[in-house]
Design a protein around this nucleic acid. Sequence first.
DNA 1: GCCTCGGAAGTC
DNA 2: CTGGGACTTCCGAGGC
Length: 869
Amino acid sequence: MEWQGRMCIVSGSYQSIDSTVPKTVVELWCRAEDGHSVVLLVHGLRPYFDIAIPGAPSPEQDPDLDSVSGMSEVVEVSEPVMKWTRHGMKRHWRVYANQPYSVRNLRKKLDNWEITSADILFVNRLMLDLDLGPHISAGGRVLWAGQRAPEISKNDDNTSKLDSEKAIIAAGGAGLYPVDMVISCNLEDLEKTDTFPAPFVSFSFDLETSISTNRILCAAAVIDRNGSRSEHEFTGSEREIMEGLTKLVREEDPDFITGYNIDNFDLPRMQERSEVICPRPKIDRLPLFGWGRVPASDSESKRVFPQRQQNRVWRIVGRVPMDAWWQARQTLRPQRETLRYVSQLLWPDDQSKRKLDVDASRMDEEWAERPEVVMEYCMMDTHLPLDILDRLKSIARKEALASVSLTPVEMASNGTTSQWIDSLVIRLADRSDPPVAVPMTNQGPRKRDQIAGGYVHEVEAGVEPWVVVLDFKSMYPSIMISNNICSTTLVRDDTRDESFASSPVTETRYVSKSERVGLVPQLLQDLMSKRDQYKHEMSSARSSEDAAEEFLLDQLQYAVKILMNSFYGVFASSFYRFTHPDLGASITEWARHNIKAIISELDNSGHPVVYSDTDSIFVKSPVGTQAPTRKPDGGEDLESWSSAREKAIEFGNSLAGQFTKEGAELEFETALSAFFSHGAKKRYVGRVVWPREEMLIRGYEVRRTDSFQLLTETMTEMFELILNGDAWSSVEMTKTVIDNLRATDVDVSKLVISRSCKGKWDKRKGEWDFSVYKNENGLPYVRAAKERISRGLQFTPGMKVGYIVTDASVSPMEVSAWLVEETDDKPPNYDPEYYAKRMATALGRITEAFGWDADELLRGTRQKSIFEF
DNA sequence: GCCTCGGAAGTC
DNA sequence: CTGGGACTTCCGAGGC
């Protein structure tokens, strides 16, 4: 039976077959467009790497290849191919190894050779060599088809599971994979296809555990099969709960595993409890925690369990762990990170997502007294992570990133920026004419002088009316393209030539595009035009009211943006395979030079630059200062405001046209009716009047999680008044707030401060270790974290810990952890003087620009009025 | 009580 | 195994 269709690669691995002729089969776990899951067993790819004679080219030398081909792990050494290296064109012999795992040993044995292309995972090798992205069209012989597989592909009734298992093993597979379909195919059966949204299946789960014994009390799981959900409850003995969860995972076969805080709580707890229940042999834990997408057999004991290397991401073979906590943290950057807080932030009006009346610090008692309420609470916390991923479009975003970086979805989701870039750069290196040898990633810690970064312009304290903001479009990528910056174009000797692009200060040189276009500039150019194309198609989709297509294209253009912006970081790092310290340094050097040149030109032409940071310029707009900065309701003032706005827009557009040149596009970003800073870099506010009307706040406490709500609100209100030209009212308003604060007349929840706290679990001692800090107990948030832990509440390294300052008159200050959202605790009493002082300091920094300092704010309204009388 | 310094976190 | 630097703020410690 044959089957053929479109699918999306979730992740991949390989199986070695140690027959007389060694073979290797690539396993690709996919989700088909039809909805079922597929494992492709791909035949025909052999592991290889390249060797060359070290140093400068030596075309005459006759190296000892016989000793290489004589090695037991070597299958074949091919005829040499000329490849470009930084030393010039050299012969490269391709060495075929018996198995991918032998390459590591061979690298060591062949240390008298220059070895390239030797640290690329076998699955990646397949995608690179066949030029595949995650979305493929594939087909082949059906070895197994389960319930959810398409009817036409199903086995004859007389084909038993046992027969299928035998057929899979004969085809190099591991056995009966817990998927809907297993297919055997060859390299030529795989083909790249257009991006489509794959109907992924997600599994969300949540455990409730005993605080006294760590035992799992109950669990809930929800399966989301392309939007339709089913609920599953688990109670009984701990073994029954874990077996139930595992059975569900294997039966429903999800691509994504989610939950809130699963990376640091639920998954480690599952692992720990499976070890407690089944100390040995390890394979007996398979029914408890065998979540990998591999057969439930003894031979898979290495791959079937979720794993993580020290402090790294979890790996579940064939699936993608995706913690909703991490997604929410990265995209929303919430002030606090409890599930309750994030839900409140996303759905302020949804009563069904409100806190249930369960005290998490008394879980054992709650479970004993009213298990049905605890189960309801557990189920709600299982749905919410799916709701969060839906709202943040996390899965669609990862799929789009996979599509533009041409990697499996797992790598787009849980891999690093250097892996995404590898996928594109190596592909191009292999296909260039001549091909470019692919050096290995630099090993070990490389100490290097820091490279200088972007330029930040001094900013004066006070309000500046009518300012236009211009930005360089993709500044670093543009500089890399226009100057042909790449390790393959860097001039490494003293040669100088008219045609070279030479950096303004250090004179780092790159050969011209006509001589050779660098790999990186070529890729960036392609990505840039790809993004323009996606954006163009997106607007077509919008006009034809194709919402699904518009959404997909929006995800794709955004993914290209993310990918382009990752290039600079990787090339400025010390470990990357295609990097050189001069590369990163010369990029920023050009950037500083370009922007400083524009600033001085503007200053000299009578258009003062108010502020600038890396790729943005704030320019004083030549409109009458008599125009109001606040939008009037009507009348003559409105006309004056509108005309000032029009003139500013005109000015912004003209500057953009004037300073845009080949390879450096300056875009008119926004027009501000007023700009304010108290005189510190990276801290400013602006009243945006074009292209939309809003207030723009950067850097100030308003945007910081270690601020507190009352300060944030007050400061925002203050900025409103200041931008309206009403600084005095802002001082009066602030004084009133501070008075109320001192009179302990403020809602304590508005005073929660939160900071992230590190720490690691000491397995030996069985307690949390905060020794990363030089003086752990001197830090208020570490003490708050310890309080949480002692109350039996979850702690995750790196999580934001909320607290209230209760007494700052002692040193170190006394604090109390904020547990109101998770327990029945009453809010603690705050230290009014501490909060008053902190408000005054932060707000006083701002009012000082108008002559009122922090002490003035602390003086209060009532005293002030007494003096006035 | 005031000042400086270093550690740490946060933001752009 | 691994993206970057610039800059500000808060806190505790320690000197005077």
